[in-house]
């Protein structure tokens, strides 16, 4: 249990909580800015997406590893937690393939090489 590891007199749960609060603030703040502070450069969709994904991963790690004790618990629980990842990756691949962009908008390495044409157009 994480309460035995003290950092500056506080246990790991406290610091995990602080980090989660900070990143949530960062996440919400990122969406409030349409332009980079102090400039007139627009924040692009991809930058916001990147921030949301990175912050999501950090928060997910914090909750899973420390609040849900996966860091200290026997590794069988970590393996159970990671098991659905396989299906989630398959799901993401399926989203790419079933999207109209999947034919000619995605890089070749993640498509079955449809020759950039729908079958009905060949």
């Amino acid at each position: 249990m994480g309460e035995h590891k003290l950092i500056m007199g506080k246990d790991i749960y406290f610091w995990n909580f602080i980090i989660l609060m900070f990143f949530t603030l960062f996440e919400v703040g990122a969406v409030f800015f349409e332009e980079y502070p102090g400039t007139d450069i627009r924040v692009s969709m991809y930058v916001v997406w990147g921030i949301l994904i990175v912050v999501g991963i950090i928060k997910g790690f914090g909750i899973g590893a420390f609040f849900m004790h996966l860091w200290d618990d026997p590794k069988i629980y970590l393996r159970v937690a990671l098991f659905p990842t396989l299906f989630v990756l398959l799901m993401l691949w399926g989203i790419g393939l079933s999207n109209p962009e999947g034919v000619n908008g995605l890089p070749g390495w993640c498509t079955p090489d449809w020759g950039e044409q729908y079958a009905t157009e060949r």
Binding site: E27, V28, A30, V31, V48, W49, L52, V55, G56, K59, G60, I63, G64, F67, M68, H69
Partner: peptide, 25 residues
């Protein structure tokens, strides 16, 4: 408390995904 806590943390974790995807994006 620990086992219920796991469920509650999962609900928190699900919101970590839902909030940016549905509210911020």
């Amino acid at each position: 408390i620990e086992y219920f806590g796991l469920y509650w943390h999962f609900v928190d974790l699900a919101w970590v995904v839902i909030f940016p995807a549905f509210y911020l994006y």
